[in-house]
Design a protein around this nucleic acid. Structure first.
Lengths: 191, 191
DNA sequence: GTGACAACTGAATGAAGGTTCATTCACTGA
DNA sequence: TCAGTGAATGAACCTTCATTCAGTTGTCAC
């Protein structure tokens, strides 16, 4: 039953959907009817459209951070932790296409300055930076800024899967393995 | 002197600027005044706002394709050609930040379906796919879809440089070399 | 039941934005 | 010199939209 979902959540869900369909041009009245709520009610929960959109992004950022860290075992080897991180990243992008599109869109909208956005992901970027730091200490990793490497594999995964999605291609186990291998190789120290 | 730039170009330039600043919410009247042109004149050159924005993207796609292929020598080895492609890609993203932001934004705006967008880049994606095909034949490359690999390094470069830009970090020669190495390693066949 | 309080509703409002079109005017060719 | 042309103009039009608020509904205490 729909009614058990709290109104605030319903509003955020509807906004997320309409942002994917129409971008920030999505009107408040359309958001309201998608959420099966009166337009005025939007303002009981969010001060303005701007605040509402930011809230969507913040909720998304929390979900993403949680997903990327999911199943992590801090006592595992850095290799294993990196491996799981990459798997989680692929799942995050692939399992929910409209979430991935929303993420990509909001990350590039002028309304939300890039500076603020990256700030929302401090959690997950610090997390991967730490793992990479450990790997570097063990000599496994190439000698580069963890910061730079984190951006590299994240962008690589997102864009590869975006193309795959856009062309309605499946993601086979072989494809997934391929992507993982490419990520790992790119970071590896070579003689 | 400003006046020698044809009106159509002035309009496209102004639109590009305002898209970066305000996204598709940029109003036609603001575009007109930025271009030092009457609002009505916009409609002498472009049927609608929608068409205008598409035209901006198309012009951008042409510029990008030209830049990526720039300086290519078809008789060079595939390794050299790939090397140059990566250099060109880095230059394209780094040399003109607002162009890079515009590119990233328009690539993710719901107004322009992803399908159409990738279509606009057929030229450059076929180009890199061809080079990768050659490299694969020579055994240098790993055994993966050129399509997948093209998406991988493109996304990787764009995202790495986006973070770098967002944090006002410079792009040193060492950074550039690092990124190149990561791209090449990710594609390399390993024992 | 009744009163008090909060949450919700959706029509009303005024501002803003995309598009149109009657008019202007620099230029052309006769 | 002058009629003809069509690009350029920008005020006006109409729609859409974010936001407001007076009224309604639901809830809980007593």
């Amino acid at each position: 039953m729909t009614k058990v979902i709290p109104m605030r959540e319903r509003i955020l869900d509807a906004t997320a959907e309409l942002l994917v369909e129409h971008g920030t041009q999505a009107s408040m009245s359309k958001i309201a009817s998608r959420a099966e709520v009166a337009t005025g009610s939007l303002y009981n929960h969010f001060e303005s459209k701007d605040v509402l959109i930011r809230a969507v992004y913040e909720r998304l950022a929390e979900q993403v951070t949680a997903l990327l860290v999911e199943g992590d075992d801090p006592s595992a080897t850095p290799e294993q932790r990196l491996d799981r991180y990459i798997d989680n990243y692929i799942d995050f992008i692939w399992n929910d296409p409209s979430r991935a599109i929303l993420f990509e869109y909001l990350s590039n909208v002028p309304l939300l300055p890039a500076r603020d956005l990256i700030q929302s992901f401090r959690g997950s970027s610090d997390y991967i930076a730490e793992i990479l730091q450990d790997l570097r200490a063990s000599g496994w990793l190439m000698d580069a800024e963890p910061f730079l490497m984190g951006g590299f594999i994240g962008g690589a995964i997102r864009n590869t899967l975006k193309w795959q999605r856009t062309y309605d291609r499946p993601l086979t186990d072989a494809d997934r393995q391929q992507i993982k291998t490419m990520c790992l190789q790119s970071l590896r120290r070579m003689e």
